[in-house]
Simulated assay, not measured.
Amino acid sequence: MGVLDYLFYTFIVVVFFQVNYYLFFLGRFAFLKQSKTVSKNLPVSVIICAKNEAKNLKAFLPSLIAQEYSNFEIVLINDASQDNSLSIMEAFASKHNNIKIVDVKNNEAFWGNKKYALTLGIKAATNHYLLFTDADCKPVSKQWITEMASHFNENKSIVLGYGAYAKIKSSLLNKLIRFETLITAIQYFSFAKMGIPYMGVGRNLAYTKTEFFNARGFMSHMKIRSGDDDLFVNEAANKTNTAICFSKNSFTKSNPETSLKTWFKQKRRHISTAKHYKQHHKTLLASIYILNLLFWFLTTVLLVLQYHWAWVVSLFAIRIIAYYLALGFSAKKLKEKDLVFFLPFLEIFLIIAQITIFINNLISKPKHWK
């Protein structure tokens, strides 16, 4: 049996695993119906950690203050900002009595560490239920707190939400950023539904104070400056305590990076954090990526050499159909339908970007926070 035979049979195996992954793994979220929840009016503390975010605080805080929820406070953490973030916080606090400010000074032992600032904010929060977002995030509706808080119950102490990015017309980079965000969300929602939650995003994440202190906060990864969201969830979440929230009123939206360089820098930080996940999570995520890489590589080689091309085209079509079904239904749920037409092209671009980022991270360590 020649080399091309081995490549062809490897291609068959890759397609088999990928079709099963898209239909039966990602399908757990893609074909999931949104269950109805009842508003519980739980006391919630919305926590925002800001470092040099004066402009964003001024623009986005009104959307938090306007939330139609009767029992919540906003905890604003000023993480040693050098701009006028603190004065803007104080201006809002003077007009709204449900705003609490935690002013964090630089600490020699935790210099520039967001987790230290967040810990102080969590300790200062009045309420048991904590809802996190970023200073540059805006809830898409006035029911954001209601929707996220409704998933807490006696068993569910962690709620994973969706943090979207704003659309920029005719921007390929914007589509790539939103596609990567979409893929990540589909994966962590699907993993959670399969009983193996592995991450969440700080743009839209909720958990209880009890869960935070039971996990000893961020202590196990305090020296890793990134990962206040995904590393915490990776450690604390399990198949019984984690819920997902993907109703359209529960999303947050952020302004995306507008240059490839800044997005590249951001993703370097995120990828460097993933190496600290639990081993079985890392193995599963690496396997998914390797299968994607092999699929496109083997498709290209076999078609260029016209080896069993009719079979290759048929198997390629089956995989693409499964891919479109899983991502198409998921994109509809998460209001990202405009990406569907570009899916295969965005997947190839993302694979190339991830390889480039991985190589860069091997050469030098990325910087974290601000």
Rank of each mutant, 00 (worst) to 15 (best):
R268V: 01
N234G: 15
N249P: 00
H281L: 15
S272C: 08
G217A: 04
K209P: 03
A286M: 11
R225I: 12
Q266G: 12
G202F: 03
N204Q: 13
L284P: 10
P197D: 00
F212L: 12
M194A: 12
I290Y: 04
N204A: 06
D230L: 11
S259M: 01
A206G: 11
Y198P: 02
S254R: 08
F213G: 11
W263D: 15
W263H: 13
K265Q: 09
P197I: 01
G195L: 03
M219N: 05
Y198R: 02
G217Y: 06
R203T: 09
C245H: 15
Y277P: 00
L260D: 14
Y289K: 15
K193W: 13
F232I: 00
T242Y: 10
Y207T: 07
T283C: 08
S250D: 07
F218V: 01
V233I: 02
T240V: 03
G195C: 05
S254I: 09
D229A: 10
K253V: 04
A274T: 10
N255K: 08
I290D: 05
S247H: 14
A236F: 05
S259P: 11
T252Q: 07
I271Y: 08
F251G: 05
T242C: 15
R268L: 00
H221M: 06
F264C: 03
K275P: 07
G202E: 04
A237E: 07
T240Q: 09
N214H: 10
L260F: 02
P197F: 01
N234W: 11
F213D: 03
A236T: 02
Q279K: 11
R225A: 05
I288H: 13
G200M: 08
I290E: 01
R269W: 01
T283D: 09
K223M: 05
C245S: 14
M222V: 13
S272I: 11
I290W: 05
G202L: 00
A236W: 10
S220F: 05
T242I: 03
I290V: 13
S250M: 10
F232V: 01
I244Q: 11
N214R: 08
Q266H: 10
T283L: 10
E257T: 03
L285G: 12
R269K: 13
D229I: 15
D230H: 12
K265W: 03
T258Y: 03
H221T: 00
F246D: 12
L205W: 13
G200V: 12
F212Q: 05
T252C: 04
Q266T: 14
N238W: 13
I271A: 12
L231N: 06
K265G: 06
I244D: 08
T262V: 02
F264V: 00
G202K: 13
D229C: 03
L231P: 12
H281F: 11
I244A: 05
K209M: 04
A243Y: 04
F251W: 05
T208N: 07
T210H: 04
V201P: 02
G195W: 07
G200P: 09
F212P: 15
S259E: 09
Y207A: 02
I224V: 11
R268S: 09
I271K: 15
K275E: 00
F232Y: 13
T258Q: 12
M222I: 14
A286T: 11
G227W: 00
K248L: 14
R203M: 02
V201R: 14
H276Y: 14
T273N: 09
S220Y: 06
K265D: 04
K282C: 14
A274I: 12
F264T: 10
T210C: 04
L285M: 13
N204V: 06
I288T: 10
